[in-house]
Write a protein that binds this DNA or RNA. Structure first.
Length: 591
RNA sequence: GGUCUGGUAGCUCAGUUGGAUAGAGCAACAGCCUUCUAAGCUGUGGGUCAUAGGUUCGAAUCCUAUCCAGAUCACCA
């Protein structure tokens, strides 16, 4: 419909003022609230070609297209704005089209690999990780829905000096305790030992300073740190005893993560472990050295000089030959292109690493220029508390499991008061409450533009009214209830709507929104922004609620109008379900 | 200090790539349940779009400077 209109305008411009596509970008937009019309064409840019007055130009275009194009019912002009109204029956025929068109399976346009989550095995998941997980999961769904093949990957940070800290603490002070013996969730259990290590280490340093050492000396002399380093050496030399403990502790963590992932409804196609990838980049660096991309310093460390490109010098191999963070990233990038040859490789990582990814792209561009352009860093703002950053060491962390548990409790209370699902079986009730709790949480996080930071105030609970997940779920449940009651009317949905119905303003608005669904998905996929989907559903649900309030659908006596309203409702419910699914949110039939 | 990101109603956020009178939701206030689910609907109040210049028919949107907040610039990851 929009394309027909656009083409007609293009034709008008060409035949009236000989303007072709290339000399100017022609676009139409939705008519603003408060003005008559469905679409608006701004004529100001045309004046330089028409050399006529604004009104006159607008009039010429208006009368040309309304003769040419038979979907137009009327037009009006306000200043330089040409407002065009579309015939009523065209809207209905468009609704017929989307309702009866079978979901065409689009061929996979391209293959997109998305890395997200990437947890550290020392730290239980907190609200920051939740944002990462939800963004990664949602954007995967959106890109897939937009017609691409998506591979979701997770790279678990399971090695390094920090992992040795919790291992050392457990060996020294754990007395053989396990998550089973203590009843603590696996990832929390290990996380506690990490905290314990830091406490003891801090104390040791304080003691050393009291003995008269400087802070610097104390840090190097602390036996705990020396022992940790020794542990790391043993690990890297494949010491069987250490590897055994490492495997054991990791298995606890993974059991814990599994529960949280399941609660969040998140899964991966492939899981990488850093312990298996951390050596990858080394050979690439050696090759690069020979080609002169990298340089070796006098102390034997290897660097890349990016000062010409506005960045700094960056180390790639330490003087002792070991790799750093970015070295393994170089390796995994190249390996992924080799194994899967994705058209895009997206990293969902916080904006604190913007610089890291800038450097990574630059480095790859020197080794493999073609693929470097396919790397995309989906950067998002940190989640912070009103008084600053969450710090696991200081205990100012909003724990993922606790937060989910809180949400479930609130959902339960609200549901209890409303009493609408009280008579259900408890397993069914719990399922619905879980859906609502997670709907509220996910929507709350995802509706915000990823690049903005979120300040989460634990004292103000996440809302269940207004622009929220539950509001949309509620709208869906209401529609489902209507459709269920409508079954008694034995309505046959399989014939097309009569096009002679006069649509109300709100009906027209809803139809026009339904028509935008596909474009919205595409836009969200292009911009890597689930918030666009969230805003879209909210608008749709809000308008539907107004429509619901204004019309008693099932009491309508005119069969044609009843038919229209049922199909409209059904299409809205389908659209809500699909778009909520893009945010990873389930919608209940009752609530 | 250099670089990057953000600053829109008391609070949380939109603003379709430069268009008309800047919009929602919370919170406040006033209404609406004998009628398909009131987690809903309707209405009222609330703004120097951080500030100052510039670009043009037209700026919250583009440019420059300044202020505020955050991130980053490691032989950490």
């Amino acid at each position: 419909m929009k394309t027909i209109l656009l083409n007609s305008i293009k034709q008008a411009l060409f035949s009236l003022y000989s303007i072709d596509d290339k000399s100017i970008i022609i676009s139409i937009e939705k008519t603003r609230e408060g003005f008559t019309g469905d679409f608006t064409f701004v004529v100001f840019p045309i004046l330089q070609f028409s050399k006529k007055k604004t009104e006159e130009t607008a009039n010429e275009i208006g009368s040309y297209i309304s003769k040419q194009c038979d979907i137009i019912s009327s037009y009006n002009i306000v200043k330089g704005f040409l407002n065009i109204s579309i015939k009523n029956n065209i809207w209905i025929s468009e609704l017929n089209k989307i309702f009866f068109s079978k979901e065409e399976k689009t061929e996979n346009k391209s293959t997109v690999m998305i890395e997200f989550s990437s947890p550290n095995t020392n730290k239980p998941l907190h609200l920051g990780h939740i944002r990462n997980n939800l963004l990664g999961d949602s954007i995967s769904r959106i890109i897939e829905k937009d017609g691409n093949k998506v591979i979701k990957v997770n790279l678990i940070n399971d090695r390094g000096i920090h992992i040795c800290k919790s291992m050392l603490a457990w060996i020294k002070w754990g007395n053989g305790a396990t998550p089973e013996s203590t009843g603590i969730k696996g990832d929390k259990f290990v996380g506690d030992y990490y905290v314990l290590f830091n406490d003891k280490y801090k104390k040791q340093i304080e003691d050393l300073i009291k003995e008269g050492k400087t802070e610097e000396e104390a840090k190097n002399a602390a036996t705990l740190l020396l022992e940790t380093r020794e542990l790391l050496r043993k690990w890297e030399n494949n010491d069987t005893e250490i590897i055994k403990i490492w495997n054991l502790m990791n298995s606890w963590v993974y059991q814990g993560f599994e529960i949280t992932y399941k609660n969040l409804g998140i899964s991966f196609d492939k899981i990488y472990y850093e312990s298996q990838t951390y050596l990858l980049g080394k050979s690439v660096v050696t090759e690069g050295l020979e080609k002169g991309i990298f340089v070796r310093d006098t102390d034997n460390s290897v660097w890349i000089d990016l000062t010409n490109e506005g960045l700094d010098r960056k180390i790639l191999l330490r003087s002792d030959g070991t790799t750093v963070y970015i070295t393994q990233d170089i390796g995994t990038v190249l390996k992924r292109f080799e194994e899967y040859n994705p058209d895009k490789l997206i990293y969902v990582v916080g904006d604190e690493q913007n610089y890291h990814f800038e450097v990574l792209k630059k480095i790859i561009s020197k080794i493999d220029p073609e693929n470097s352009e396919k790397i995309k860093h989906l950067s998002y703002g940190m989640v912070e508390l009103p008084d600053g950053k969450m710090k696991s060491r200081e205990g100012t962390v909003v724990d993922a499991d606790d937060l989910i548990e809180n949400m479930i409790q609130t959902a339960e209370e609200i549901s209890e008061t409303s009493g609408k699902i009280n008579e259900l079986e408890s397993y069914e009730k719990n399922e619905i409450i879980h859906q609502i709790a997670l709907g509220a949480l996910k929507y709350y996080i995802l509706k915000i533009d990823p690049k903005k930071q979120i300040i989460y105030n634990p004292k103000e609970s996440i809302d269940f009214n207004g622009n929220t997940g539950p509001f949309i779920q509620y709208t869906f449940a209401r529609i489902e209830s209507i459709l269920k009651n409508a079954e008694k009317l034995n309505f046959n949905y399989n014939f097309k709507l009569s096009e002679n119905i006069k649509l109300s303003e709100i009906e027209l608005k809803i139809i026009s929104e339904l028509l935008e669904f596909k474009n919205t998905i595409h836009e969200a996929a292009e911009k890597y922004n689930p918030g666009i989907i969230a805003n879209y559903i909210f608008e749709l649900a809000k308008n539907y609620n107004q429509f619901y309030h204004d019309n008693n659908i099932l009491k309508e006596t005119n069969r044609d109008i009843l038919h229209l309203r049922l199909i409209l409702s059904k299409q809205v419910s389908i659209t809500i379900k699909e778009s909520m699914n893009l945010l990873g949110i389930k919608v209940p039939n009752k609530m």
